[in-house]
Simulated assay, not measured.
Amino acid sequence: MADQLYLSLWFPNFRVAGLAPALVSVIRQFGRVGGSSRVAAATVYPISRTEAPTYQRIYSENEMEEAIPELAVAAATESLHDDFAYEFDLIWDLWTPEVGGGLDPIWRKEPSRVSVIGFGPEFDDGAYEQNGHIRVDFGIDTPFLHEDVDLDLPAVSRVKENVQLLVDFTNAVQEHCGISSRLLWSESGESLAQKLVERLQRVN
């Protein structure tokens, strides 16, 4: 069953004034691992995620210069509050099988959305304690497991490439973003690493 996958990041001696540069630093790491560090969309939530956004912007292809992390983050955090959350959507390409007609799946790289969310210390009653000062939402874990596809050796290499992107990004954040701790976790609490090991043991 598909599971939501997250990476929570905590920073030492964190203050809301440091949120914008921390967000820029994390977003920049997507460019290091072959993804795009250009922001696709930005949204600002007050108080909690159930509240209507106070700021939303979707960047078109004609706004690529304004979509660089420094400018996109600066625009969204112009009004910086302890009880706001700042969300930035990015795109990276992951191997995805196209299945149909009873034939072997054709694997193609398809764009996949990732969200980087910075939490003010008072947002949602201090949700950062559990979620991290910054949380990266990778979406469902399907691209890293593809449990609905029969894996042969070529398919395994595609899944491993997707997993390697995840590992490389996490390592880049560890090395370049000055975090104090990190946690890769899923909505169900199951370990992605354990699920991957079990998945690869069933290779055809």
Rank of each mutant, 00 (worst) to 15 (best):
A2D: 11
L5E: 01
Y6S: 06
Y6V: 05
L7D: 00
S8D: 13
L9C: 03
W10R: 05
F11P: 00
F11W: 14
F14P: 00
F14M: 15
F14K: 06
R15D: 13
A17L: 11
G18W: 03
G18A: 12
A20F: 04
A22K: 06
A22G: 01
V24S: 04
V24F: 03
I27L: 07
I27P: 00
R32M: 14
V33N: 06
G35Y: 02
R38G: 06
V39T: 04
V39E: 01
P46C: 07
P46G: 07
P46I: 07
I47P: 00
I47W: 06
S48L: 08
T54I: 12
Q56L: 11
R57L: 12
E61C: 04
E65H: 09
I68M: 08
I68T: 11
I68N: 09
A75S: 14
E78A: 15
D83P: 00
D89W: 05
L90I: 07
I91C: 07
D93H: 14
G102T: 09
L103M: 11
R108V: 15
I117L: 12
G120A: 05
E122P: 00
F123D: 00
F123G: 01
D124T: 05
D125S: 15
Y128D: 03
Q130W: 13
N131W: 13
G132V: 03
I134N: 00
F138Y: 12
I140P: 00
T142D: 13
P143C: 11
L145V: 12
E147C: 03
D150Q: 13
L151H: 04
D152E: 11
P154V: 13
A155C: 06
A155N: 06
V156D: 03
S157K: 13
R158H: 15
R158D: 02
R158M: 14
E161R: 10
N162A: 11
N162S: 12
V167R: 08
V167D: 06
F169K: 00
T170M: 09
N171Q: 14
V173I: 14
Q174F: 09
E175N: 05
H176N: 12
G178Y: 02
G178E: 02
S181C: 05
L183F: 15
L184Y: 08
S188D: 10
A193T: 09
L196K: 04
L200D: 04
V203T: 14
V203G: 01
N204H: 12
